[in-house]
Simulated scan of single mutants.
Amino acid sequence: MSAFNKLNVFLLWSLSLLVALVSWRFLVLGVELSMPAMMHHMDGAKMAFYAHVFFAPVALAILPFQMSNRLRMSRQSLHRWMGRVYGVAILIAGVGGLIIAPDAATGTVAATGFFLLSTLWLVSTGLAIWFAMNKRITDHRRWIIRSAALTLAAVTLRLQMPIGVGVWGFEAAYPVIAWACWVPNLIVAEWYLSRKPALMAA
């Protein structure tokens, strides 16, 4: 494995697990202290909000395990079971995201970005699972990479927020980040898939 690939693997594992753990801080601190910008959801679809913020980190924490070639080859049964948990977590978190997206802070642009993210997240993951169940492994791998790119929006959002808010302020940055946290991820995934057709068929 090249140094570049080792770095990518390290970043996938460290950032996925770190962001997942940090995302569960509301379990200890409560929403008001840990996510003050999200408090408006407490007056609306509270259960959908909790479903999203609890189960999305579950999917994120499982992701590096599912992307591990070593685990997939040596522990196929575990890979399948973790895939089921990943899919259920995204189903719950994605539906929660669809419900709370229209109430996103800063208005319609942010709401549309997050709503489309949840929609594509559900569709890509559903297709990946459907192809796996039908033994269409090449198609499964292609769609799970798209799903992974969207799951990693949780990471890119948290990397972008301090910079965006620090430079432009929350009101200006948040609508942009609602799109920037996932559109570039998906573009990179499509670029990767276009460059690695043989890998997808392996």
Rank of each mutant, 00 (worst) to 15 (best):
M82Y: 11
K196R: 15
R72E: 04
R25D: 11
G169S: 06
R195A: 13
W81A: 02
W191A: 14
V155F: 07
L33R: 15
S74K: 13
A178Y: 06
G96L: 01
K135P: 00
L15W: 10
S74Y: 00
L159E: 04
L186G: 05
G126W: 04
I177H: 04
L60G: 00
A61Y: 04
P184D: 08
R25T: 13
M38I: 00
L127N: 00
A128K: 01
P162E: 03
A189V: 11
V155I: 15
A59W: 03
V58S: 04
P184Y: 09
V188D: 05
W143S: 04
V95S: 06
F65L: 14
L150F: 07
S34L: 08
V167C: 05
F26V: 14
A89K: 02
A189S: 12
N134P: 00
L29W: 14
R25E: 10
V183D: 02
L78W: 12
M47C: 00
T151G: 09
N8I: 12
T156V: 10
V167A: 09
M67I: 01
M1E: 11
P57A: 00
V58A: 03
W121S: 07
H52M: 11
I129V: 14
A128S: 11
F49H: 11
S2M: 02
F65E: 00
I145M: 09
Y86V: 08
L15T: 13
A61D: 01
A93P: 02
G96Q: 02
F115M: 14
L71H: 04
R136L: 10
I187L: 15
K46E: 13
M133H: 13
V176D: 10
I99L: 06
R141T: 10
W179T: 08
G126D: 06
R80Q: 12
I187D: 09
R75G: 00
R84L: 14
F114R: 11
T151E: 05
Y174P: 01
G94R: 03
M161N: 03
I145E: 01
V95W: 06
N8P: 00
R158K: 03
L127H: 00
I163Q: 09
W13L: 07
A45F: 12
P102T: 06
S194I: 06
G113L: 11
G30F: 08
P64F: 06
S147N: 07
G126V: 05
P64G: 07
H140K: 01
A111G: 12
M35W: 10
A111T: 08
W130E: 02
T108F: 15
Q76D: 12
K46I: 08
